[in-house]
Design a protein around this nucleic acid. Sequence first.
DNA 1: CATTTCGATAAGCATGCGCCTATCATCTAC
DNA 2: GTAGATGATAGGCGCATGCTTATCGAAATG
Lengths: 140, 140
Amino acid sequence: MTERRDLAAMLHPLVKALIAAEIRALEPHGISMWAYVVLSALDDGPVRTQAALAEAVGADKTRIIGTLDRLQEAGLITREPDPGDRRARLLAITDAGRRRRRAAQADIQEGEELLLATLSPGDRAAFLRVAETLANNVGP
Amino acid sequence: MTERRDLAAMLHPLVKALIAAEIRALEPHGISMWAYVVLSALDDGPVRTQAALAEAVGADKTRIIGTLDRLQEAGLITREPDPGDRRARLLAITDAGRRRRRAAQADIQEGEELLLATLSPGDRAAFLRVAETLANNVGP
DNA sequence: CATTTCGATAAGCATGCGCCTATCATCTAC
DNA sequence: GTAGATGATAGGCGCATGCTTATCGAAATG
């Protein structure tokens, strides 16, 4: 009935190319993929535990420790013990971190625009809308 | 200006979920991801060298050897020395391979339809069309 | 208070992959 | 022919990742 290729077969190369471009765009800003993902997550609001952050960004909780160390050292995030429960660390982005994240995001989206520019305005809007919808459908 | 999340951030989780679902769908058919990708590539037409196949499926040429071994052993592909250049191996899918691939693809797409079913017909069509377009834009 | 639970951290192990090298057979060019 | 290029294959190295365990400080529970 359906005459089409598999979704994964179409989207996987696309995502690989997007990620490669993203890594290239991130390099001048001196932050890694994971660092950027963490900054983005914290830009949406602070997080009470590192486990929650790891869960939110889809990473192993033992994996992001080094990333947090480097971000903190660079002054892009703060990581203070929760006064209410001193086992937990309150994670928040700093103003410098926010600026860094916004600048990096601008470069990333600039690159993505080159791809999207080939689409008709209608297709472009529909694609972004659907991508957002589907991403939310599988995530939570 | 552009008020949206990064494309990669939206599509990556989606692709991960699609691939996980694909692996699950493939299991009853007794073939791996790479085997399915190889079968799909050969279903579109035979290939003269393994290096060309590896290139086509985006894999390392030393990585697919084991996959080809198993596919050949299972009778799903043929791998014969090219009479014209006996260094090269002519790769082709067998009828059994084609049946296996078609059956697996049907299961995979059935799962994908569950996701796409939440979309309006217009959005669904636009999304598939754009995904195909973008995949072709980054691939070659 | 003593036991148990929980969060962060470090360390170890297995996996899968990209990359690089070596080997062997074959083909091509001179 | 002889030298160099090409294809398949095997093996090893390094990296990133997921998963598991151990430790330690701090809470919570009884």
